[in-house]
């Protein structure tokens, strides 16, 4: 990996855009999902660190758009559109959605799986293909998307590093 590559960090419930020569990273994904929309021809990508499946859940009047699958993807899409990307040129990759604990509280049951399903549904409505994904399981993930190569690097505690 190029040492000079600039890293754009995406915090929890945040959204960010980055260009060629940069990498989008987010760390410590448990039930959260890191979703990346990218345009290979323009060499741009946006990432959201999604916590919850649906913005209808919120009881806030203002909230961080990246927190929910639907508003997170809309924001990613808008950021790319502002840079001139067309929806039919966009592709997606994602990772996360683990079930860290066998929680018994019903609200939180399988929240990771619900996040993944909500993202898949939303992307299918938008006709954006999911090129690769690494979801589910019981372990945390840290991810890094290299815009130059469109490779998503995934690191876990026990399984080491893989690229999708």
């Amino acid at each position: 990996m190029n040492q000079l590559q600039e890293q754009v960090k995406v915090g929890i419930a945040d959204v960010a855009i980055a260009k060629s020569s940069q990498a989008l990273i987010t760390s410590g994904l448990g039930s959260c999902v890191g979703i990346i929309l990218y345009d290979e021809s323009l060499k741009i990508a946006s990432m959201a660190h999604v916590m919850l499946p649906d913005s209808n859940m919120t009881r806030q009047s203002h909230f961080k758009k990246g927190k929910f699958a639907d508003t997170g993807i809309d924001t990613c899409l808008n950021l790319l559109s502002e840079e001139g990307s067309q929806v039919f040129n966009m592709k997606a990759k994602m990772a996360g959605g683990a079930q860290m604990f066998k929680t018994t509280s019903s609200d939180k049951l399988n929240i990771g799986q619900k996040n993944v399903s909500a993202i898949e549904k939303k992307l299918s409505q938008l006709n954006i293909p999911i090129v690769a994904k690494d979801v589910g399981g019981h372990n945390g993930r840290s991810i890094e998307f290299d815009i130059e190569t469109s490779q998503l690097k995934i690191r876990t505690v026990y399984q080491g590093v893989q690229y999708i």
């Binding site: 448990g30 039930s31 916590m51 860290m100 993930r141 505690v157």
Partner: peptide, 27 residues
């Protein structure tokens, strides 16, 4: 308390589990 659990993993991935309920109403 409900059933306790133990794991070795990334702190962010673990801590977020406790923030899910709060995240519906607050940042």
């Amino acid at each position: 308390s409900l059933v306790p659990e133990a794991t070795v993993d990334m702190a962010g991935a673990i801590m977020t589990e406790g923030l899910i309920e709060t995240s519906v109403t607050s940042d």
